[in-house]
């Protein structure tokens, strides 16, 4: 086997290994967290990054032909569609859970949220200044 083929094998294996590690992390995260909105963070990571790494590795294995282009199309499609799936699922959870306030904070409207964020920002700045002075 020539050197180019060895390099292709090594790099492809590397990408697939990274993808598998991401899948394992996703699976572990899904079982580790205790609420579905937290688990969705882990699942969304696997759906986009994990499968992209695996498919890029497989693209390197396959070389330059039509199959590679189709795999690239799969990656593009998944990068558009998976985050929307997560968004829709989290809306499902937020709409059908009666005691959502025990899991996360709910703001009534946009102005309250902005005020909270501005207050938190100001407090953070003053804390930093105190730390730097002392």
């Amino acid at each position: 086997m020539s050197a180019v083929e060895w390099i292709r094998l090594i790099i492809g294996c590397l990408f697939i290994l990274v993808g598998m590690v991401i899948f394992f992390t996703e699976l572990f995260g899904v079982f580790h967290f205790n609420y579905v909105l937290n688990r969705m963070h882990a699942a969304a990571m696997g759906d986009t990054l994990g499968i992209s790494a695996c498919l890029i590795g497989l693209m390197i294995f396959s070389g330059l032909n039509f199959t590679t282009l189709k795999m690239f199309l799969i990656i593009v499609f998944l990068w558009f569609a998976s985050p929307v799936s997560s968004h829709v699922l989290s809306r499902l959870e937020a709409a059908t859970n009666d005691n959502l306030s025990s899991h996360c904070e709910i703001y009534e409207d946009v102005e309250t949220l902005e005020r909270e964020l501005a207050a938190a920002g100001k407090d953070g700045d003053t804390e930093k200044k105190e730390a730097s002075v002392s």
Binding site: F77, A81, V84, H87, V88, R91
Partner: peptide
């Protein structure tokens, strides 16, 4: 039913032709 979800509409304008 939830209607006029902005994110879904924007992504659907790209994905449906594909």
């Amino acid at each position: 039913e939830p209607k006029n979800d902005a994110i879904l509409q924007v992504v659907a304008t790209f994905l449906v032709p594909v």
